[in-house]
Write a protein that binds this DNA or RNA. Structure first.
Lengths: 206, 206
DNA sequence: TAAATGAATGAATAGTTATTCATTTGTGAT
DNA sequence: ATCACAAATGAATAACTATTCATTCATTTA
């Protein structure tokens, strides 16, 4: 086993601390997360957070930014992938929403903890508002293109985007609350079930 | 203006404190909610929570129980109402989900705050698991009856129940995060849009 | 009207936790 | 090797907050 070097690039240390924060929020809740817990989980000393983030509040903000960036960047990679058809992009979007990296219970606990605080913390709110808007625009566009490509008459792309997004968030909650009886594959099945209702020619088979 | 009497039935005081707690969680977040805030918002003294709930933690548990009971009881009243047809019950369920009393942003903030802590607090988790299970059973039954009554061939009642429930939770999130551009009526429209895809004969008109 | 009751108060306490910073330690340059 | 520098440490501090409980006060009872 290689020893962890005492000195490390600042970015690596920051990511290490953010990952410990995610675990800690999942384990103890946002209200039960202390600096002592986070640094102990990271295997580092108490003062390290001050060194890399100045305050606890800034560490929490960067933690929220980390999970929103991970989500946004993953979807952008799909959206801007020239090798995928529109249908394939939508399929990839669903697969990503319920992939190991994203539909992870630790991260889901973090999402919900921060969502619960958005009303009281403008900083949290604006971080969330940003990514939501960008993703909605891209997804609406995909549905709109598919509608035109395949001549779906009565589809309302914006409504379908809002509906799919809400459905996906609600399925995340089911994964968080009932992990024993409800798995990522079940969630994916339900998401596809909805898309079939709107685009039966594209999502009915396989 | 009538003076608030100094002495009041215990139940009334407890409800008063729970309502102050809901406002306080919405205003300051779960992690930022202090006994001083809650009691000040209720217009009472610091020691009152200890008198009526023993500890802060028990006040929080009762607050969660309050909103889950309110939700469950409201839906039970619909489900067991002999005067409503199955279709009317489902319509009433949707209307209730996005009614003033339920889709209130203060209460939504409380829901999400507690959901974010369910992974770390078994008590919160079991309170949520209970109501979810009961509601799912009743709603699945409604979809099942409607399927048989109206001869819908390919509807899977259990899947539709999970899908509707997730959709409703996700729409609550949209109401919490984007209250300016997304209103309860928009949420209701989207929920009905999904039900139409499954039961076009019942939910397409009006 | 006076005494008894118990709900409500809030100053004081005890415990917790974020933050600070003097000291230690590893690393790379000379 | 030695030095200079930066990263990391953790004991001490300062701030905050849940809980306690002796006291106050309104209401009820005799």
């Amino acid at each position: 086993m290689s020893e962890t070097p005492r000195s490390l690039p600042a970015k690596t240390r920051r990511k290490q601390l953010i990952k410990a924060t995610i675990k800690c929020i999942a384990k103890n809740g946002l209200s039960g997360t202390t600096m002592a817990d986070v640094t102990k989980l990271a295997g580092l000393s108490l003062g390290i957070v001050n060194l890399h983030f100045e305050t606890k509040e800034k560490l929490l903000v960067e933690t929220l930014r980390f999970i929103t960036d991970e989500y946004r960047n993953g979807l952008d990679k799909i959206f801007f992938n020239e090798n995928l058809s529109t249908e394939e992009k939508i399929r990839a979007h669903v697969a990503f929403d319920f992939s190991r990296a994203i539909a992870d219970r630790n991260k889901l606990a973090v999402w919900f903890a921060f969502w619960g605080e958005t009303k009281s913390r403008p900083t949290y709110h604006s971080i969330c508002a940003d990514y939501i808007d960008e993703i909605a625009q891209n997804l609406t566009q995909l549905f709109s293109i598919l509608k035109n490509e395949q001549n779906y008459q009565s589809v309302d792309p914006e409504l379908v985007c809002t509906c799919y997004t809400a459905l996906s968030d609600g399925l995340w909650l089911a994964l968080l609350l009932t992990p024993k009886s409800f798995k990522a594959d079940d969630a994916k099945t339900i998401a596809m079930h909805y898309l079939k209702t709107q685009f039966p020619n594209n999502f009915t088979m396989t």
